[in-house]
């Protein structure tokens, strides 16, 4: 057993574990590794995705603040150690798979919007997010209009009228407005081996 073949076996074990934990096949996990390599070497080539690298990929600039990018990063970073490792990347993207259940997608978005992680989406949090999206788009709304948007949203989503949206209320709300989960499905993930065909040069298995 040469060191090279031992390394290959270890890698195969890792790939097969990730495939069993997610909706991806081994070849698809390998194709995702091509994407991961690209993202994790864009600023610091250390095999980890730093927040600035995710920001560069999504916003085309590593500088500046973006509340939503921070939240996405935090949810990908399962171990909460400030970087996204490959297994965390594959786990999170699995939720964006077209075959992932809506319930999983809905839970992910709920956690994303529950900024202070209280188990509820509070009105103040929604206000903060609306202000953030307005700033991102260089838009401004007078406070009365902003409050009107919040009133309308909570009249629709906050069934028990306690000023916050519970996970159950959120589930009902997204069922009424499925477009709110549109971002949570990435059709590319169904054809990831075609999007990153170069994985075949490093593959451990031939499907």
């Amino acid at each position: 057993c040469s060191p090279e073949s031992q390394k290959g076996l270890r890698r195969y074990g890792e790939l097969s574990r990730l495939a069993s934990e997610t909706r991806f096949s081994i070849n698809e996990v390998e194709a995702l590794y091509e994407l991961f390599k690209k993202l994790s070497s864009s600023i610091i080539d250390d095999g980890l995705i730093h927040k600035e690298e995710l920001q560069l990929a999504l916003l085309r600039s590593p500088y500046g603040e973006n509340l939503f990018l921070d939240r996405v990063f935090d949810l990908f970073d399962e171990k909460r150690n400030g970087v996204i490792e490959f297994d965390e990347f594959v786990h999170a993207l699995s939720i964006f798979h077209p075959h992932a259940p809506m319930e999983e997608k809905s839970d992910f978005v709920f956690k994303l919007y529950d900024l202070t992680q209280t188990g509820f989406i509070e009105r103040e949090e929604v206000k903060q997010m609306v202000i953030a999206i307005l700033m991102e788009s260089d838009m401004w709304l007078p406070d009365n209009l902003l409050e009107a948007i919040l009133d309308k949203t909570f009249a629709d989503a906050d069934a028990d009228k306690d000023g916050r949206i519970s996970k159950e209320e959120w589930k009902v709300f997204v069922r009424k407005h499925p477009s709110l989960l549109k971002n949570m499905t990435l059709p590319y993930l169904k054809d990831i081996t075609t999007v990153f065909p170069s994985f075949v040069f490093n593959t451990e298995v031939e499907d």
Binding site: L35, V126, L145, K182
Partner: peptide, 26 residues
Amino acid sequence: ASPVTMNAFELISKSRGLNLATLFEK
């Protein structure tokens, strides 16, 4: 839709920070 008829989450979901499809663009 105008902002008044739009619910807050529709607005929020337009953030570029939430559009992960960008990761796959070459």
